[in-house]
Protein backbone atom coordinates (compact mmCIF):
# COMPACT_ATOMS: atom_id res chain seq x y z
CA UNK A 1 0.00 0.00 0.00
CA UNK A 2 1.29 3.43 -0.90
CA UNK A 3 1.56 5.80 2.03
CA UNK A 4 3.18 9.13 2.75
CA UNK A 5 5.91 9.25 5.36
CA UNK A 6 7.94 12.15 6.76
CA UNK A 7 11.44 12.56 5.35
CA UNK A 8 14.24 14.95 6.22
CA UNK A 9 15.09 17.22 3.29
CA UNK A 10 18.35 19.16 3.17
CA UNK A 11 18.46 21.89 0.53
CA UNK A 12 21.43 23.59 -1.13
CA UNK A 13 22.19 26.94 -2.74
CA UNK A 14 23.92 25.42 -5.75
CA UNK A 15 23.75 22.22 -7.77
CA UNK A 16 27.48 21.79 -7.16
CA UNK A 17 26.86 21.70 -3.39
CA UNK A 18 24.07 19.14 -3.84
CA UNK A 19 26.15 16.86 -6.02
CA UNK A 20 29.10 17.34 -3.64
CA UNK A 21 26.84 16.10 -0.83
CA UNK A 22 26.05 12.99 -2.88
CA UNK A 23 29.74 12.27 -3.46
CA UNK A 24 30.64 12.86 0.19
CA UNK A 25 27.84 10.69 1.56
CA UNK A 26 28.59 7.87 -0.88
CA UNK A 27 32.28 7.92 0.11
CA UNK A 28 31.48 8.04 3.84
CA UNK A 29 28.61 5.53 3.61
CA UNK A 30 26.21 8.07 5.04
CA UNK A 31 22.45 7.64 4.65
CA UNK A 32 20.24 9.44 2.14
CA UNK A 33 19.91 10.21 -1.54
CA UNK A 34 19.56 13.06 -4.00
CA UNK A 35 16.02 13.94 -5.06
CA UNK A 36 14.42 16.91 -6.83
CA UNK A 37 13.40 19.54 -4.26
CA UNK A 38 9.78 18.79 -3.23
CA UNK A 39 7.23 21.34 -4.43
CA UNK A 40 6.33 22.26 -0.85
CA UNK A 41 9.66 23.98 -0.26
CA UNK A 42 11.82 26.35 -2.24
CA UNK A 43 15.58 26.38 -2.46
CA UNK A 44 18.43 27.91 -4.41
CA UNK A 45 18.96 24.75 -6.42
CA UNK A 46 16.59 22.06 -7.64
CA UNK A 47 18.29 19.09 -6.01
CA UNK A 48 17.98 18.16 -2.34
CA UNK A 49 19.21 15.43 -0.01
CA UNK A 50 16.52 13.10 1.38
CA UNK A 51 17.28 11.06 4.46
CA UNK A 52 15.36 9.44 7.35
CA UNK A 53 14.26 12.03 9.94
CA UNK A 54 16.10 10.23 12.75
CA UNK A 55 19.48 10.71 11.01
CA UNK A 56 19.23 14.50 11.27
CA UNK A 57 21.56 15.30 14.17
CA UNK A 58 24.40 12.94 13.33
CA UNK A 59 24.30 13.71 9.60
CA UNK A 60 24.26 17.48 10.02
CA UNK A 61 27.12 17.29 12.51
CA UNK A 62 29.19 15.16 10.14
CA UNK A 63 28.69 17.38 7.10
CA UNK A 64 29.33 20.50 9.16
CA UNK A 65 32.63 19.07 10.37
CA UNK A 66 33.49 18.22 6.76
CA UNK A 67 32.88 21.83 5.75
CA UNK A 68 30.00 21.12 3.36
CA UNK A 69 27.55 23.90 2.55
CA UNK A 70 23.82 23.47 2.75
CA UNK A 71 20.96 25.91 2.79
CA UNK A 72 18.10 24.63 4.91
CA UNK A 73 16.54 21.61 6.57
CA UNK A 74 12.88 20.61 6.27
CA UNK A 75 10.63 17.68 7.08
CA UNK A 76 8.29 16.81 4.20
CA UNK A 77 5.73 14.03 3.74
CA UNK A 78 6.64 11.96 0.68
CA UNK A 79 5.27 8.82 -0.90
CA UNK A 80 7.29 5.95 0.51
Amino acid sequence: MREKKPALIITFSTTTDAMGMEKFCAAQHLPGRLIPVPREISAGCGLAWKTPVETKDSLLQTIEEAGLHWQDVHVVELWA
Binding site: M19, E22, R33, L34
Partner: peptide
Protein backbone atom coordinates in the same frame (compact mmCIF):
# COMPACT_ATOMS: atom_id res chain seq x y z
CA UNK B 1 26.67 13.79 -18.31
CA UNK B 2 27.25 14.22 -14.58
CA UNK B 3 24.30 16.59 -14.30
CA UNK B 4 22.30 14.47 -16.76
CA UNK B 5 22.72 11.38 -14.56
CA UNK B 6 21.53 13.33 -11.51
CA UNK B 7 18.56 14.64 -13.51
CA UNK B 8 17.57 11.17 -14.71
CA UNK B 9 17.70 9.83 -11.14
CA UNK B 10 15.57 12.80 -10.08
CA UNK B 11 13.09 12.13 -12.87
CA UNK B 12 12.63 8.48 -11.91
CA UNK B 13 12.23 9.46 -8.26
CA UNK B 14 9.60 12.03 -9.32
CA UNK B 15 7.61 9.29 -11.04
CA UNK B 16 7.28 7.53 -7.67
CA UNK B 17 5.69 10.71 -6.30
Amino acid sequence: DELGAALMKSYIFSLTQ
